[in-house]
Structure formats: C-alpha cells, structure tokens
Design a binder for these strands. Structure first.
Lengths: 128, 128, 128, 128
DNA sequence: GTGGTCTAGACCACG
DNA sequence: GTGGTCTAGACCACA
C-alpha cells in the first residue's frame, strides 16, 4: 500500500507520514479505519519497527491517527481535509505528469518543476 | 534566487542542489555562468557556509559545476539535460498547480498528489 | 540537576520531562537558557541518549523547548506559567512533607496521600 | 471508588495498586473487607479484566490482599502500616493542596512540586 | 498480538 | 560537538 525509498534523502518516517496523509486525503483511508500494525508494516516496507513507530507517534501528535494501546492504530475521526479537491485534482496531475514523461523528463526533473512552481507561487512556507 | 526551508525535513544541502540543478535545466543558469560565492550565498540563505560548501562539493562531484580554486564556481560546460522539454513543461505545470490551488489545496497536498503520481507511474526509483 | 529513578514504573523520559517542566516553572531554567546536550545528559543520568532524545522531542512538541540542529536545545521564550505561585508554594509543601515524614510516613504513603487529594478535589483529569 | 487515568503514562495496574494501598492505609478498606470482583471492577474502570487481574495478583504477591479461589479478594489481616499517621496527615495535605489550587496551580504543577520535594529530601529511592 | 519503553551503537546533517 | 535518523533486539503493558 505504501512505497518508501530509503535512498531519497527524505527520512523514511516522513515519507510514510506523507503517504498516509495522502491516503486519508484521497479517501483510501477513512476515519475509523485501522492502520496496519507497526511490526507488520515494518516488515512489508523492509524497515525497522521503531521507524514505523516514530512515524505513527508523529501522526498521533499531528492528530491524524489515534493509537490505542493493545488495540491498534486508527484513522482519526476529526480528519477533515478537502477530499473532493484531492480526488478531482488527481486527473489533471496525471495528465500533466504523463505529458512531461512523454517529453523525456525523468522523475527528478518533473519533481523540480513542480517544486519550483510551488516555491514561486506559494505564499506558504514548506513545513515539516 | 534560491529558497531553502530548514524545517522541511529534507536536508538543506540537498534542497540547494536540486534548485541549482533546476536553474540549469530551466536555463536560468547557463554553462559558464558563475555561481554566487559560498559565503555570500550562505548569508543570503541564512545557513552555515559549511553547508553550502558541502552542496557545492557534491555538485562538482556530480559534474554539475566546476570549482576553480580562488576564482569561484561555474556551471559546467558539459551540462546537457533536455532544457527544451523543461522550459516547455513549465507552462503546463504552472496551469496545473494554479488549478489545484484554486481548488483550495495547499502546498503539501499538491506535493503529495504529484509524488503519488510519480510513485505510481514511475518505473524509476527516486534517488539521491 | 535532575534525578531519574529507573525502577519507579514511571517511564524515565516522562520523569525527565516533568523535572524540566518543574525547573522552568520554578525559575531554575529561564527562557533562552540552553539545556544540557543530549549525550552529556544521558551520561549524567546513566541512561541511553535515545531516551533523552525522546524526552527532548516531546518537550519540543509541547512547546517547552526549541531544538536547534547543530546548536543545542533551548528553553522556549513563550514559556509563561505561574512561576510566582510555584516558588511561593514550595515552602508550604516543604513544611507539609516534613511533618508527614516526622510521623513516620515513607515516600510512597506521602505520594498516595497527595495523589488521593488531587483525585478527590480535582475537576481535572491527569494527563500525559 | 477508584480513578484510573489511562493517559498518564503510569501503568494502569500500578495506579490501581497504589489506590488500593491508599484505601487500606486510610482505613477505607479494613482487614477482612472484600474487594470488588475483577470483572465488575474492570467494567467500572473501563479497562480489560486481565489488567485488573494483574493488579490483584501483584497485590497478593505483596501480601496486601488474599485471593480466595471462587470467593473473591479480601484485604489481608496482616496489613499493618501506620494508619493513624495517614489519617491524621490527610488534613494537612488537604489544606496544602487547597492553598496551592487557590494560587492557580493545576494538578501537574502541584504533583511536580511535591515530587520535587520528595526527591530532594528523601534518602529513600522511589521503588516499584 | 498490539503499542510502548529502553538499550547499544552506527552514520548523517548542521554549526 | 549538537541534534537526527535508522537498525537490532529485549522486555513490558494492555486487549
């Protein structure tokens, strides 16, 4: 369900958090849903359980999920977000990325293009 | 010219490298152009000169730039890349991002959207 | 400066957090003050650096301290609290505890007495 | 009769033990008195019966209570302790805590205050 | 079996 | 030297 790249320079636990966040935004994970157990997920993603635990703890702090001792991790009920916008946006992103790929750009170049655009047009600062 | 976010979790020196790489791809920096001095850049970006130095060293190692002792850092002549594709791609990325922003998505949600797309469609693994 | 008891059943990192919080409340640590380095403190308290790191991270989350990469940990400026009440309260607590000790009560009995009183009179729930 | 806080970081079974111990010290529970049934208590305190069972087992091990198979749990006859000192101490603790509350201190601050006092003046180490 | 704490120790990023 | 990430693996608390 998730794909982590240990070589990207982005901490693995952050990658996991972003992907869970996206899964929630996109509706793949819904409030109340149980997340995979830490150990099981660690095994799937070929990483250490402690690393998964760190991601889960941070997500709990962020109010994204709730950890119930002995019971598991669950998507928080308060998770709102604009799921509609995210789901609708997927199509245009898909088209744009496909076009860029067709022109011979690799992942890195595409990523830099998007990041550059975000940096230029965003009043927002990129945060943890 | 560059914008680094120390809080993003992505190493600052990597952010700088990616932005230089993009500037070259996009034509903002051309072969032979001189890069800002390390100390000056460090001051501008509010970071330690050692961190800038590390980024420059890595870029030299990658063949992106050439460090001429006592003279400064210059964009390498050998820098190929598909500049045309990058420049042409900017417009569509700009349109896509603007549309997503208009739907109320913030930087994070947009980033997660294209990262998700890259991960799903990319045969390529994201590398350092 | 701090005293941790590994056998108490209360997690060591929580004990450390409470003691730092108290030091701030009591004025022993003031906004802007630098905390001991994680490794150094770990050595002093005879615990693992990772355990200290966990305490520091939680305190950062709680807004108690700020962690500056490569620079150290510092007491947050926003730390208000009612220092006066805490400092003035110390005397009465000191007297009460001394009296209880004189009557032959041990730490456990004294603690249970206070906790019982807090539970009975507190509208507040004891939180992490 | 008892109040457990699952969020405090202190193990629930330890909280329960301490509260039973206090009830005995304070005379609320007298030698020979029957303790609530494990299942009933678990329900009241919103916790798993196994957790209550663990607390009861530990208390039996500590000689605090006796478990009579099929009959229930009873406060041990041998329970000594200085009940008089505890009962007499309640008044001064009540006064002290009330004063601290009046000064605006919350449960946490009060707890840190007496824990700090216990740590400073106690030759005793806090044990399980 | 699930989350939580702790240890020991390696390597990286930043100042 | 300071904080930060990751691994490997033990043991505890709770359901």
């Amino acid at each position: 369900m998730f794909r982590i790249n240990p070589q990207s320079g982005v901490p693995m636990y952050l990658q996991l958090i972003e992907q869970v966040r996206h899964a929630i935004e996109a509706g793949a994970l819904r409030p109340g849903d149980q997340l995979p157990g830490m150990r099981r997920l660690a095994e799937q993603l070929v990483m250490n359980p402690n690393t998964v635990a760190k991601a889960y703890r941070e997500m709990e702090h962020a109010g994204l999920i709730a950890l119930r001792h002995g019971a598991g991790a669950f998507v928080a009920e308060t998770t709102a977000g604009n799921r509609r916008a995210v789901r609708e946006g997927r199509a245009s992103v898909k088209r744009t990325v496909a076009a860029l790929r067709a022109q011979g750009l690799d992942d890195g170049a595409i990523r830099r293009l998007f990041e550059s655009e975000l940096a230029e047009t965003g009043g927002e600062v990129r945060r943890k």
